[in-house]
């Protein structure tokens, strides 16, 4: 101990060693600076990622869809599971009466064709162009009557967002989270987040009840009420959280994790700094 101290003292007194000493020894405020940098960069990065809105273009479903073209696409891509005439097989349901809205939602969001059997079909990049989706929808709709492509006047997001929010809290928020951030269901299934979903796909999901989502027909939620709900979801998309970083809007899980890691981490760091002896 004594020897070490004397060598250090000797080093201190020699001017040539000053630079080396500075490089080796931590600055007294290094811990604090490190914590601040960590907090700011994590928070900043999170804000950056969470605020990156996806620039989805609404599916332009034109009236020029060709059922004949759709039948070919169906035979080539869907018939393995749903059968050549969409009558259904042991691995896929019949598509009679599902309507154009179902096809537009399932294929347009990339859920169909299914990548693999699992708890539920997951969203992935759409495999077909909007025109091809429209063709497929036209053919499936020609088989049996079903919910059609929604009227574009309900998709403008110009309804009453307050009414939409109330309806969303009553009908949707228990699964999709009050801020539309999604949530878990049973046995690996989940309600997806609704941020960045196109108005048409939201409307079609309500009308058709894809997978385990219940159906919300026009008697349950009228088209104008659906338009209000879309308006609310678009409002959430375009208005940032007034409280600052929303941490995914997942409530106590993400907020608790954040404060456990960064809040307690900062407390521990500061405590160690306070208790440590000065050089």
């Amino acid at each position: 101990m004594g020897i070490r101290k004397t060598t250090r003292m000797a080093k201190n007194s020699s001017p040539s060693a000053t630079a080396g000493r500075k490089a080796n020894r931590r600055h007294p405020l290094a811990t604090v600076a490190l914590i601040v940098i960590g907090l700011v960069s994590t928070g900043g990065a999170y804000a950056l990622f969470s605020s990156t809105a996806s620039a989805d273009t609404p599916a332009a479903v034109s009236g020029a869809a060709s059922a004949a073209q759709g039948e070919k696409l169906f035979a080539a891509n869907c018939a393995t599971c749903h059968g050549m005439n969409a009558q259904g097989t042991s691995v896929g349901p019949s598509l009679y009466g599902v309507g154009a809205a179902s096809v537009s939602f399932q294929v347009g969001t990339g859920r169909m064709p299914l990548a693999q059997q699992g708890p539920q079909a997951e969203q992935k990049p759409a495999q077909f162009t909007d025109a091809q989706v429209a063709d497929l929808a036209a053919w499936v709709a020609s088989l049996a009557p079903g919910p059609g492509i929604p009227d574009s006047k309900y998709l403008q997001g110009n309804g009453n967002s307050a009414t939409g929010a109330e309806l969303f809290r009553v009908n949707c928020a228990m699964c999709h989270n009050v801020a539309g951030a999604g949530g878990a269901l049973t046995e690996g299934k989940f309600a997806p987040a609704l941020t960045g979903v196109t108005a048409a796909h939201i409307y079609e999901a309500m009308v058709t009840g894809p997978q385990n989502m219940p159906v919300f027909n026009d008697a349950n939620l009228t088209p104008s009420q659906k338009s209000d709900i879309i308006t609310y979801l678009k409002y959430l998309d375009t208005n940032p959280s007034p409280g600052g970083i929303d941490l995914g809007n997942l409530g106590p899980v993400s907020e608790g994790l954040f404060i456990w890691i960064f809040g307690l981490g900062a407390v521990v760091g500061v405590t160690i700094w306070i208790a440590a002896k000065a050089n």
Partner: peptide, 14 residues
């Protein structure tokens, strides 16, 4: 009020 005919298969009403 809810008519029985409005409650289609797969529907859920609150």
């Amino acid at each position: 009020p809810i008519k029985a005919a409005d409650v289609t298969l797969g529907s859920v009403f609150h």
